[in-house]
Design a protein around this nucleic acid. Structure first.
Lengths: 335, 335
DNA sequence: AAGGGTTACGTAAGCGCTTACCGTAACCGA
DNA sequence: TCGGTTACGGTAAGCGCTTACGTAACCCTT
């Protein structure tokens, strides 16, 4: 029904092959200026826009890359996806997003995206599992770059150096003179790898400075902000002597919640208690007191990851590539 | 290379057609329990996952819907896209996102998505233009539901009732006793339709109450927050007598900027000046003083829009469908 | 015993494009 | 005059699915 390459071919009076070759600028193929013109005219007049599906089927490549993330409400992911979409568009690729909190969980698998011949995938995992196909085997139909955490399982990854970041932020907190610093993490005991590095950095620095570490773990869940609020209230309810004088929180979203919880309960940040986040989100900066946090620009992450991915698509089959991106400390008004 | 339907067929010893029919549960087709079993076993053993491209080519439907928005950094859009992705996944569809600030602009056209046989599209437009294909004709290869603003051009749309919302929020502001209320809009003089309704509601209410209206228009641009900051500073720099005592701002992002601008210049909100946003974003609620705003849940918008879209895909060709969603006033601490 | 309905599956023609492999015809130099 | 280029472009075989149509075997009916 729609105008296909056949329509154009008939209109111009040449074969479909010629149309295809001219439109794709096939190297080594020469058409007369005349046919070229005619073809382009016909295309314009008919409003012909190929059919990407057929094209992909024919070429065996879809010029689409898949992006799998937990959610988009976290602005960090939103930015990540946005960057991926624009960067891949610039390279002539489409971005197919899939939101699957399940990917990366123990039973994580490549849900909907499966069977879609994406040329490559960017996958954010919170856990250290591998993407699996429907039968539970490691997915390997197309190259994947895992985002978020460093890996040692032979896959490609781009991560922010959480250990380094954790140290930067913890040291900063101690540098401001705090002595009883707690760490707050949405901890998933089933998958102990999660966030190890940020937390380990915290405990390391704490020990090095000769202080006592203290970790609060809350169940990992969607409504991070609310979780934070609850924790904030709990802490505010403690007698002053038992309370920490600083809280290093695993990410901005939760930290924001904690901020609200503390504030609503009448505690002042940072006068009564210092607070830090992690991620460098916009929200954090829009708090009354911009949040002290550590940012690894998702744009950068997307850029580096796509670089790797495109090289894989182009055939690069060297050993596993990993890139650690160092974050930068953003000192706000909460410490 | 990958395992195709042919592989399965050979393994089981039946024709490809049978595989396809069994796997798709073709109504009216009966296979023996035996073959069914064999097929499912083979599929499991081989790890066969169809090829969606070929499937789509064959059926003429791609089971993919496209979503076009300005950006994802605006959490409103992020939420919209997230809802679309999850809701369509639930219906067995994929979501293909395209970020194109240009769509909806005067020269707006269906960029990358063009040629991709999406079964339908959700398009957010800031302006009242129609999606165009490469040759400048109205795009009509697949059904589209336009989001954001009501339309009278025969296309389907889902919008939040901006006039109603504008009235709600303006009246609320006057109800708090303000008398010199200004309106701030990122106004694109090239496309005067933009936001007419919110602003008109403001002027209407203002006149009804016997006050003088005053509109500040700033160039529409990406860094909305920064624009807001600048305006906030300008206003703060005015002598108190010339200053408004309330600012009704076109959206949360800009309002947040204004908040910061005012705050940094030493003005207090709402004591010195009241402030409202529009959209009900998370950021707005995370401000020190949660922003008074008007929210039209993007989830709801996505839900309603997809409902319409799926009905169109199913063949519903009734006249244009429009749905106006009433927003609800969120009274924060800025008024 | 012949016609007719089931049951269970095969055949083959697409879907709209790409591309390896062949023509032609004109032109050119020797 | 003839073989060899060069310029231009047609043919047809896929890519991996779906589906309209056909058919063979079986059982039941009258």
């Amino acid at each position: 029904m729609a105008v296909s390459i056949k329509t154009v071919a008939e209109r111009v009076g040449v074969s479909e092959a010629t149309i295809s070759r001219v439109l794709n600028n096939k190297p080594g193929f020469q058409a007369s200026e005349d046919t070229r013109k005619k073809i382009h005219n016909a295309v314009a007049e008919l409003g012909y826009v190929g059919n990407k599906m057929a094209r992909s089927l024919g070429k065996g490549r879809s010029e689409t890359i898949g992006v799998i993330v937990d959610c988009l409400t976290n602005p960090y992911f939103a930015m990540l996806v946005e960057s991926t979409a624009t960067l891949s568009a610039a390279a002539g690729y489409h971005a197919l997003v899939e939101i699957t909190p399940s990917v990366g969980s123990a039973s994580g698998r490549v849900g909907q995206l499966s069977g879609w011949p994406v040329d490559g995938m960017l996958v954010w995992t919170n856990h250290w599992t591998i993407l699996q196909d429907a039968s539970g085997n490691a997915y390997k139909d197309s190259p994947i770059v895992y985002l978020g955490y460093p890996r040692t399982d032979g896959t490609d990854w781009v991560a922010s150096d959480l250990y380094d970041g954790g140290r930067q932020i913890t040291e900063h907190v101690y540098d401001t003179g705090r002595k009883n610093v707690w760490y707050l993490t949405p901890y998933d005991f089933d998958i102990p790898v999660r966030s190890e590095m940020r937390m380990r950095a915290y405990t390391d620095v704490t020990k090095e400075r000769g202080f006592q570490d203290h970790v609060i773990a809350t169940p990992r869940c969607e409504e991070s902000t609310d979780v934070g609020v609850a924790v904030g209230q709990q802490i505010a309810a403690m007698p002053k002597s038992e309370r920490p004088d600083a809280l290093v929180v695993q990410n901005d979203l939760i930290a924001i919640g904690v901020y609200r919880g503390l504030r609503d309960a009448g505690l002042r940040v940072p006068e009564d208690i210092a607070l830090t986040g992690f991620d460098g989100t916009l929200e954090g900066q829009n708090l009354e007191r911009p949040l002290t946090t550590l940012s690894t620009p998702p744009q950068e992450m997307a850029r580096v990851a796509l670089e790797i991915l495109f090289s894989r698509i182009a055939g690069n089959d060297a050993g596993p590539i990993g890139r650690m991106l160092k974050g930068t400390l953003l000192v706000g008004k909460t410490t």
